[in-house]
Write a protein that binds this DNA or RNA. Structure first.
Length: 418
DNA sequence: TCTGGGGTCCTTATTCCG
DNA sequence: TCTGCGGAATAAGGACCC
């Protein structure tokens, strides 16, 4: 059996923990740069704020309906998430932290437990220690646990936030109820195609023939069908090691300027290098992409990505920046207004198991140089050491007009109780 | 004026090699 | 030297997730 524990409206709830007066108030949390809505309290959902609503289009609605708006505060969410996850780790030896606000627990050998009670205990313990509300779904497979969680969320009065799927009848009933677009693993595209075939519920989907699903929806669809029928084919993914690390950002303005985009790419590469060094690892593949604004259909669109193998594993800002720029120069095309770019590094290995290259070596001074740069940057915070390919004047600041305090991670932001 | 960012996995097309 | 084939490797792109 698997349990899926998912925090309710996680980001919005985090803000509520420290401002209890907001309980029962509508809250939304905005994406980076205050772009669009990425989390909503139940009240905000009822007020008709859709997910991903562009903030600038909903300004008036926010005011009219007295919706409390927050910029995203990832320090706060990360810290609250860590607390939740460490509590959850006490409830099973096998835990997969699936995202910042949800995790799977494998409940092998728990058959003689009263699972409903176990779920309730988990829920109340998390509330006791963090004041965050969660829902618990328990079922024989991961996708069914996800479904059970969905049911727990949808009918809070009936199930008190915990739902267990155990028998074939319960599986059947749940699949019959679940809309196809709400199945975990079926996104917008697949559900549209399925609906055209008159497949509207999860049950319709699992009744399709294996060969048909394999042909139309690939191995992914087939695996999903089996998992939904109770045959556990999706297993826990416990390794927390990342396979790629990315830094991608929209620009403050559209630009056709080669030098501008190049500077951004260089800076993103430096950021990836810093993230690699932070976790003591290196990469051997770097991918760069640039793109125009795909919301503006009136302008010509361009999107291109390119990957570059490094001749040696590296986490040096200088090296990664150099190769990122080289890659960028190959994909840049004149005459387009670029809006966004990104650098993704992969082929990640721990620095201490580095392969020595026969022919090409990184400049042997880089590791020490980077260590020193990291130290200085850490010590002096904002005033960073930069590469010559980066813009020295650029102190890019995310728009975060509604940023809340970091209640749990900064001394100066601690709550004061009078 | 103003529409996020960070991930995973799989498929497809292409290339290289024997 | 040319051709065809299949497998392996890989880049790019697309689907999905939060």
């Amino acid at each position: 059996m698997f349990a899926l524990i998912d925090c309710n409206n996680f980001y919005a709830s985090c803000h509520r923990v420290f401002q209890p007066k907001l309980i029962h108030q509508p809250i939304v949390v905005l994406s980076n740069n205050d772009g669009c809505v990425i989390s909503r309290s139940e009240e905000a959902k009822l007020a008709g704020i859709p997910m991903c609503a562009p903030a600038h289009q909903f300004q008036q609605v926010f005011e009219q309906k007295k919706i409390e708006v927050f910029s995203s505060n990832y320090q706060l969410y990360a810290d609250m998430s860590n607390r939740v996850m460490s509590i959850l780790s006490l409830y099973s030896p096998e835990q997969e932290i699936y995202s910042i606000d949800e995790c799977f627990l494998k409940l092998t050998g728990f058959d003689h437990f009263d699972l409903k009670n176990y779920g309730k205990e988990i829920k109340s313990k998390i509330y006791q220690f963090t004041k965050l509300p969660v829902c618990v779904g328990i079922a024989p497979t991961k996708s069914l646990a996800k479904l059970a969680n969905h049911i727990a969320k949808k009918f809070p009065e009936v199930h008190q936030g915990v739902y267990v799927i155990k028998t074939q009848e319960q599986i059947h009933k749940a699949l019959k109820w679940l809309n196809i677009e709400d199945v975990w693993g079926i996104g917008r595209r697949m559900s549209r195609r399925l609906k055209l075939m008159d497949v509207n519920k999860a049950l319709d989907f699992v009744q399709l023939k294996d060969e048909f699903i394999r042909k139309e929806f690939s191995i992914i669809g087939l695996r999903l069908k089996k998992d939904l029928l109770g045959e556990s084919v999706l297993d826990l993914n416990i390794t927390s090691e990342k396979k790629s690390i990315a830094t991608t950002r929209s620009f403050e303005e559209y630009t056709s300027n080669f030098e501008y985009v190049k500077e951004r790419v260089s800076t993103f590469a430096v950021s990836c290098a810093e993230k690699l060094r932070k976790q003591n690892s290196s990469c051997n593949l770097i991918t760069v992409f640039i793109q125009t604004n795909n919301f503006d259909k009136s302008k010509p669109q361009y999107y291109r990505t390119i990957s570059f193998h490094l001749p040696y594993e590296s986490n040096s800002s200088i090296t990664l920046s150099k190769f990122a720029i080289r890659a960028f120069e190959q994909i840049y095309k004149e005459g387009y207004e670029y809006k966004k770019a990104g650098v993704i590094v992969s082929g990640i290995i721990s620095s201490n198991q580095k392969q020595l290259s026969l022919f090409e070596e990184e400049n042997c001074h880089h590791p020490n140089l980077m260590k020193t740069i990291d130290l200085i940057n850490k010590k002096f915070g904002g005033a960073k050491i930069k590469l010559a390919s980066q813009d020295l004047n650029k102190t890019w600041k995310m728009r975060q007009n509604k940023l809340s305090p970091c209640y749990t991670t900064k001394w100066k932001d601690l709550l004061v109780v009078y």
